[in-house]
């Protein structure tokens, strides 16, 4: 045990939360606590105060709205896993959510919390990148702005979020019928696992020609990343063995993994290429 003595501000509603956020820019936003409580126990952080978003119903809902699904930032993973619209339209997000920790973590961890935590190893970020997810950042002073997740991270544990902003929701476009979706997590075990490599993929095919490609990756760079070179190697091409090899080769220029306690850079590079190749080959039918 190591108890933080920091005060906790408990807003009554979203407007109150935004006002508190503006008034206490050094305070940390507290959602499900599944990351913050670990950091506190490890003495990794010592925030002067917290703003507790957990109890705000405005941040919890999951709504299917026309061409996209809007997920409140404080929606927990169990809610996502059980949500009929998410299950129908975003099956790889459901799969990814089911690999976040295990049941106890899924019951408490939130999608907005994990996005803001900015871990390069987050399980759902690669899928959200592949799905072109857009964040709703909100502040009292400037209201709402929309930031694609692909533009959100600026460096290791750094984001474009201003000190007076919070993530209100994630808007996830519903994939087209022709979109092929994929999720693959290579972890240390089958649950309670931090990833060695994660791939979220979306490929739009016209016949056997790739018209759109999104490849989102975890644990291969300082932030969750897309792989623009590999994507470019696919777009406009027939999904042939040579196209696949070109995309795999291009991937090396997109990712910059490191050695850490969970794996090695060399393993990550090789495995990223291998799981990409396997997925693309499986689409050739």
């Amino acid at each position: 045990m190591m108890t933080s003595a920091a005060p906790v501000h408990t807003p009554a509603d979203l407007a109150d939360a935004l006002a508190l956020r503006a008034a206490h820019p050094a305070a940390w936003l507290l959602a499900g606590g599944t990351d913050i409580m670990v950091y506190l126990e490890a003495h990794a952080i010592d925030p002067p105060a917290f703003i507790d978003l957990w109890g705000l119903p405005e941040l919890r809902g999951v709504d299917s709205r026309g061409d996209h699904i809007r997920v409140g930032a404080c929606a927990d993973y169990t809610t996502l896993i059980d949500d009929p619209a998410v299950r129908a339209h975003l099956p790889p997000l459901v799969e990814a959510a089911r690999t976040v920790g295990a049941r106890q973590i899924q019951n408490r961890g939130t999608i907005g919390g994990n996005i803001a935590n900015a871990s390069p190893a987050g399980d759902t970020m690669p899928v959200l990148l592949a799905l072109d997810a857009v964040l709703e950042l909100q502040s009292a002073a400037r209201g709402l702005r929309a930031v694609p997740l692909a533009d959100f991270y600026t460096g290791y544990k750094r984001t474009v979020m201003a000190p007076d902003e919070l993530i209100a929701a994630v808007r996830i476009p519903k994939p087209a019928k022709a979109d092929r979706l994929h999720f693959r997590k290579v972890g240390t075990r089958l649950a309670q696992s931090i990833s060695k490599v994660v791939l979220g993929g979306r490929l739009r095919l016209d016949g056997d020609t790739v018209t759109e490609a999104r490849l989102g990756w975890g644990s291969v760079a300082a932030t969750p990343v897309r792989s623009p070179k590999a994507e470019a190697a696919l777009v406009g091409q027939a999904l042939s063995p040579s196209t696949i090899e070109a995309a795999v080769a291009a991937l090396d220029g997109d990712i910059t993994p490191i050695d850490d306690v969970r794996s090695t850079a060399g393993y990550r590079v090789r495995v990223a290429g291998r799981i990409l190749r396997s997925w693309l080959e499986s689409l050739r039918g």
Partner: peptide
């Protein structure tokens, strides 16, 4: 473990299984 890995501290909060080592009591 004190970090939400082992589940020995599991309790139900509003019917859901939660690691009580990861929940600040204010919540």
């Amino acid at each position: 473990c004190g970090e939400g890995e082992c589940g020995a501290c599991t309790v139900l909060i509003d019917g859901r299984a939660i690691n009580s080592c990861l929940v600040p009591v204010v919540q």
